[in-house]
Amino acid sequence: MHLILFIIFAALCLTGAVNLLFQKQPINSALSLIVVMTSLAVLYLLLGAEFLAAAQVIVYAGAIMVLFTFVVMLLNAGREERTLGSRAYRTVGFPAVAAILAVIATSFIKLQGFGSARIDDHITSTADLSAVLFTKLLLPFEVTSVLILVAILGSVALARKGDAEGREPK
């Protein structure tokens, strides 16, 4: 059961990611990224991370991707034109990516004593998570809320019309 679910949703993940690369329209790329994120939520659930699965759907597939689709529609982003770009990314970039993948994959395969996941594994409940989050890691949690506040102010200041003194554009 676990194996079947893993294969289905891993395949969905990979096809979504490859589709993101090959789509010309940014809106199609955004939709395939939503597919990737939602199937990642299922994989989190298979690994026993129930809170993160919910947060993945709500925060990533919900909030962040809605923001992306809003911006795509707002800026009316059409077909992207295929330019060749610089030659540097073909001569250096792709071999570098292949090397990164090879290094990461071999180091993962060589990991000793790595277990396997079953469908009836223990589940990290939200209570377990919050017991650590709100005691030991309370300060980082609160600092992150300040970060979110600064991000809100920054994005409002960046995205509004007018110059730094707040004058409206002529």
Binding site: L14, A17, L20
Partner: peptide, 27 residues
């Protein structure tokens, strides 16, 4: 009825590299 956890790690490595390729080829 179990999946080796290494498969999850390989999947994450492949997804990461697809992200890097997208970063390089998208215009």
């Amino acid at each position: 009825h179990e999946v080796p956890l290494v498969w999850y790690l390989i999947l994450s490595a492949v997804l990461f590299c697809l992200g890097v390729v997208g970063f390089l080829i998208k215009r």
